[in-house]
Nucleic acid binder design. Structure first.
Length: 836
RNA sequence: GCCGGGAUGGCGGAAUUGGUAGACGCACACGACUCAAAAUCGUGCGGAGUAAUCCAUGGGAGUUCGAUUCUCCCUCCCGGCACCA
């Protein structure tokens, strides 16, 4: 309310030169487009800078004030780089395959492409209002056949290298979406990420990408350096840590437990082979394949099948819930031999053992909480072989009243008694290895990527199933395999894609033998298109090649990548995987795609919750821009707080950045009208100006936009009371403000008579020798408390400062009757006196 | 439970990485201008005290001449992972 009154009064006072953001912003946006100043060019002699935003999904709902935050940040960064003489690539596009568009199509019975086109158009109109410096000539859309031709092509390269395989294992199945989901698409509570329905397990033929083959490279790539010793991946350490945890490397051993009266072994992966002497039983995942193989000798099959059924009904998340009580079933008839002790061990199944991790089998002992609890519940014999190295209650460990899980000292372990857990692991592995019963093994948490979706709105998987030849690739010259028009977009519910209902599309000739064959009807997940889009921007119009190597080499890697923290694992892992693969094949010149990555802190609503229709707390950016202008909006979002931190929106605070812009406007108008140039000082700039240029440049470089803006505000405060300020200083100020507030600075820049855009002008330089003041303010501490401040010449040394301090009356009064026993001088910063 | 990030005035935040705590902005108060209001400009603005001064960066200890910053313990908040063998 207050704000509307404020702005209305402004318009009552409209003068010839009043600041009219609406007029100015529109004018310069069309002028920049006309002059093509943001078009990216490959210029061999220039330094390059590739700035990338995570491209949006063009949803039907409008933008809220939080969405543009990241875009503003990259816009500021790329504008500064352009002014600093870099050849800048700052593109934008749309990630438009996926469920929302498909669900909308089902509801409206229209082709999803129609809705996508409309949303893209609207999205672009909305982005335009902010004045972003995108090179729209490179716009991409993942649903464009010219784009997904290459998504399919990359998939084929992977398939040819054996990285894509069919799997019939049970997959996550959403009964509502009627489609399979990757583990990563299932929420923590076992529900579908999209619709919230409880996810079930259902066996289904799927295409899976062998991302686990790249586990080691995804891990080591985080610390890999180029020839000059620079890290390929210069991300925040916390994000790297997230990726390391996602890959989840653990080193251990594969141990063989011989099955009694059989030649077979059960293989177990363990990281705690030091506990093997206390292994008294074995636990298999209920889905373990050996159960079927040994069915004839198992006497309690019914019980086992019942347990298997029960297990299938609960999600993996529930199975791995620490608070659930342990349960299991003894397999009657199956006995294995402990390779270390030679003793017989019964075999159980339990749902907390997962088939997908390790070998789907564990050996159990008293040194694991889960095993311990299960043994106590079913009265399974336990043994101990590790005691705490120091402290701890050894007796309660030995008497099995306490479960000791840590590393310690071995006992009851034959020749390994007395060794520490760590040493013992290597020695025991070697000992069993020599008997052919164990091998060192590295295991990863990372799971292979379930890649197919039984959906319409995705890239068709370019494979053909031939009765004679098996799976055959669609020849490259026939790509793209275009999505055919269908009548119904609904999932079939049988697990097959709607594409399977189109006989004319499905039935083809085998490319190899020309016999009868059928197309693969699964489509790719939404992650596919976003796993390589950074490459497409380097050469978006090339229909003949995946990318022009010259252009690709020129722009890659991405110098700055900005997007949501929620993508820190999935998207960034997938994109790194694809890029690594393409690098290994020689299609790209860089091992890692994104050099710098910074995540955006969410903008929350004023009530502290996430902005959502549901809470009715969404702030519409276009209402804000209509009132305050895009420049004020941009400035405010950057000034709010640290860029990577979540922060609540506060419309009241918007007024500050609007006032700031108006004061810049007023100052420049005054200089212009009165034609004030630099006075006596000529071209010499005051030191605060040098400091501002330095600080703003450094802050933009490291995305510390909040302090960059406050530095600009301080500079303006100084300028307003500085009689030496003229047009020249105003121009320099406009230049360093230009990335933040591109429209108003352009208007004033031209007002001063400049013919070319401020955004292609040269970024101002500062003089390092003029950064510091000629006079120093030195605080004087006495016993750690500041008691006085002395003013000294900048050239004054320690002796001079000390002398001045002792003369100072505020200091002197504390010295009465005391002795100075220690003097600490921090150069140019502080003097500390310690009194006895 | 584990890992990571936090906690600073009425509010958002700053602090050169161990050196004047509260920059910059919002809000608020007073003053100028105005018939009046808004806008604008100026002044003030952590708490206590007339003042000297004292207290104060979630709480408690420690290291140091000096701690928002480092160490240890505790409380709370936010993210991520979670029976991973």
């Amino acid at each position: 309310m207050k704000l509307i009154v404020y702005l209305n009064t402004q318009y009552h006072l409209v003068k010839m030169n009043a600041y009219d953001h609406k007029k100015i912003e529109k004018k310069w946006q069309s002028e920049w487009a006309k002059k093509k100043i943001f078009v990216a060019k490959e210029k061999s002699q220039k330094k390059k800078c590739y700035v990338l935003d995570m491209f949006p999904y063009p949803s039907g709902e409008g933008l809220h004030v939080g969405h543009p935050k990241g875009y503003i940040a990259t816009d500021i960064f790329s504008r500064m780089k352009r002014m600093q003489g870099f050849s800048v690539l700052h593109p934008m596009g749309f990630d438009a395959f996926g469920l929302p568009a498909e669900n909308y199509a089902i509801k409206t019975k229209t082709n999803p492409a129609v809705g996508v086109a409309r949303n893209v158009k609207r999205y672009k109109e909305q982005l335009a209002i902010f004045g972003f410096d995108y090179d729209w000539g490179r716009e991409i859309n993942t649903t464009d056949p010219e784009y997904y031709k290459w998504t399919q092509w990359i998939f084929l390269q992977m398939w040819k290298k054996g990285l894509a395989f069919e799997s019939y294992e049970p997959i996550n199945w959403c009964p509502s979406c009627k489609t399979g989901l990757a583990n990563e698409d299932v929420e923590n509570d076992g529900t579908c990420e999209r619709c919230g329905t409880k996810v079930e397990k259902k066996p289904m033929r799927q295409w899976v990408l062998r991302i686990t083959d790249y586990a080691e490279k995804l891990l080591s790539g985080l610390d890999e350096k180029d020839a000059e010793g620079n890290l390929y991946v210069q991300w925040p350490e916390s994000i790297k840590e997230l990726q390391r945890n996602w890959v989840g490397k653990s080193e251990g051993a594969l141990v063989k437990f011989k099955i009694k009266d059989s030649e077979d072994f059960i293989e177990v992966f363990t990281t705690r082979i030091d506990t093997i002497f206390s292994g008294t039983f074995l636990i298999l995942a209920p889905e373990h394949p050996l159960l079927e193989k040994y069915a004839p000798i198992i006497s309690n099959k019914k019980e086992i099948i019942a347990y298997q059924k029960k297990t299938a009904e609960i999600t993996e998340i529930d199975r791995t819930n620490a608070t659930r009580e342990k349960s299991g079933v003894l397999i009657n008839g199956l006995i294995v031999i402990n390779p270390a002790t030679g003793k017989e061990m019964p075999v159980w199944i339990a749902d907390f053992v997962l088939a997908q991790y390790g070998t789907g089998a564990v050996f159990a002992d008293a040194h694991d909480r889960r095993d311990f609890d299960m043994a106590k519940k079913y009265n399974i014999p336990l043994a101990v072989s590790i005691r705490p190295a120091t402290g701890g209650n050894v007796e309660s460990v030995k008497s099995l009243t306490e479960c000791f899980e840590g590393d310690g000292i071995l006992f009851n372990s034959g020749e390994f008694d007395g060794l520490s857990s760590e040493t013992a692991r290597g020695k025991i592995t070697a000992w069993l290895d020599s008997k052919g019963l164990a091998t060192p093994k590295i295991q990863y948490k990372l799971k292979d990527w379930v890649y197919s979706r039984q959906r319409y709105w995705g890239e068709p998987i370019p494979l053909i199933h031939c009765e004679k030849c098996g799976v055959v690739a669609v020849p490259e010259k026939e790509l793209p395999v275009k999505l055919p028009k269908v009548k119904k977009y609904e999932p079939t519910g049988t697990g097959e894609s709607p594409l399977s209902a189109i006989d004319s599309w499905v039935n083809v000739k085998c490319p190899k033998c020309k016999g009868k064959a059928k197309r693969e009807t699964n489509t790719m997940p939404q992650w596919a298109g976003s796993s390589w889009y950074h490459l497409r921007y380097t050469d978006p119009k090339n229909t003949k090649k995946f990318a022009d190597p010259k252009k690709e080499k020129y722009w890659m890697p991405v110098d700055l990548y900005v997007g949501g923290a929620e993508h820190a694992t999935r998207h960034l892992i997938y994109a790194r995987f694809w890029h690594r693969f393409l690098f290994d094949c020689g299609y790209v010149g860089t091992p890692e795609p994104y050099k710098k990555y910074q995540y955006v802190g969410l903008i929350m609503a004023e009530d502290g919750r996430k902005m959502s229709k549901r809470w009715q707390n969404v702030v519409n950016p276009y209402e804000i821009i209509a009132l305050y202008g895009a420049d004020s909006m941009r400035l405010y979002e950057m000034f709010m707080g640290p860029f990577d931190q979540a922060i609540s929106w506060n419309t009241n605070s918007m007024i500050g950045s609007r006032r700031f812009i108006e004061r810049v406007w007023k100052l420049c108008q005054t200089m212009h009208e009165k034609d004030i140039h630099i006075k006596s000082t000529g071209t010499v700039l005051p030191s605060y100006f040098h400091r501002t240029i330095k600080k703003v440049g450094e802050d933009i470089e490291s995305l510390k936009y909040n302090t960059a803006v406050s530095t600009l505000m301080m500079c303006l405060n100084e300028m307003e009371s500085d009689s030496e300020v003229g047009k020249k200083q105003c121009e320099l100020f406009l230049q360093i403000l230009a990335p933040f507030a591109p429209h108003v600075t352009e208007e004033l820049w031209r007002l001063f008579g400049n013919k070319k855009s401020i955004h292609v002008s040269d970024w101002p330089l500062f003089d390092p020798n003029r950064i510091s003041e000629s006079r120093l303010n030195i605080p004087v501490q006495i016993n750690g408390k500041v008691r006085a401040t002395i003013i000294a010449d900048a050239t004054a040394g320690e002796e001079k400062i000390k002398e001045l301090a002792l003369e100072d009356p505020d200091v002197a009064k504390w010295l009465v009757g005391k002795k100075v026993i220690k003097v600490i001088y921090v150069k140019g910063r502080l003097l500390s006196l310690v009194l006895a």
